[in-house]
């Protein structure tokens, strides 16, 4: 005797991932860490940007990197030269990082270091324009990169990452003249779906725009510190 029933779930398909992201964010908040999720298509310049960022900001901001690229040890080794903890995550054949993978990285960070000493965790996502934006990893801020060589239409064709980004870096601006990239058009295309995004053209090669990016990083760590009123952080007195 069979009876058929209906169970109304109304649960987001990514429910399990969202719970994992909340878990990660709770760790970050507890330790006073801001987390940036850095996303782009393959080769847009994520690792190059992180290298410049670590080199310039590590004296003033205590950073760690969670490296989720599939060419992982290569990228991780490039970043380790800056004396910053780099936790490489084996993403297998996944085309994006998910919350669980990043949790593994966070727990390792907490095990090997004192996590509350860190201000900023930079997560380099798998190079992919399509789905990383759909899988939160517990970040406070989404940073998207689009290189000038990819074409102005990419934000229209792969809109979700660009729609959700808090900051868009238009990278490799040194190459713009060679590929006749129209930066205004790129910006206009992104603003069609994300009018409030901060857009910064940068070149890791010439250094153009990097100061603006560093300033953006600084201000977004401070926002986090001010709003996280349960744990006000004081500057450490010099020893």
């Amino acid at each position: 005797m069979h009876q058929t029933f209906d169970a109304a779930l109304g649960i987001n398909l990514l429910h399990a991932n969202q719970e994992g992201a909340d878990h990660n964010r709770a760790h970050f908040d507890q330790w006073g860490i801001t987390c940036f999720n850095v996303m782009s298509s393959p080769g847009a310049g994520k690792t190059a940007l992180l290298e410049k960022t670590l080199a310039a900001l590590s004296p003033e901001i205590k950073m760690a990197v969670i490296e989720g690229d599939m060419t992982t040890e290569l990228d991780a080794d490039r970043l380790r030269q800056y004396g910053v903890p780099v936790i490489a995550i084996n993403t297998g054949r996944s085309c994006h990082l998910d919350a669980k993978m990043v949790a593994g990285g966070i727990h390792r960070l907490a095990h090997d270091y004192t996590p509350s000493e860190f201000d900023l965790v930079l997560v380099e996502n798998v190079g992919n324009l399509v789905c990383p934006a759909e899988f939160e990893v517990g970040e406070h801020v989404k940073v998207a990169l689009l290189s000038v060589t990819e074409g102005e239409d990419k934000p229209l064709k792969y809109p979700i990452m660009f729609q959700e980004a808090d900051c868009l870096l238009i990278t490799k601006t040194d190459l713009a003249p060679y590929v006749e990239a129209d930066m205004e058009q790129i910006a206009a295309n992104v603003r069609q779906m994300n009018p409030d995004v901060t857009i910064i053209p940068v070149s890791a090669k010439t250094g153009e725009g990097l100061e603006l990016w560093f300033e953006w990083v600084r201000s977004h760590i401070r926002v986090q510190l001010f709003t996280n009123s349960t744990q006000p952080r004081q500057p450490q007195p010099a020893a």
Binding site: H2, Q3, T4, L9, L13, L14, Q192
Partner: peptide, 22 residues
């Protein structure tokens, strides 16, 4: 610009149909 999305972002498990053997 597109600001308010009314529909199109859903990724939802609405319901399950199941049977139990009494």
């Amino acid at each position: 610009p597109m600001e308010d999305i009314l529909s199109g972002r859903e990724l939802k498990i609405d319901r399950l149909e199941y049977s139990t053997d009494s």
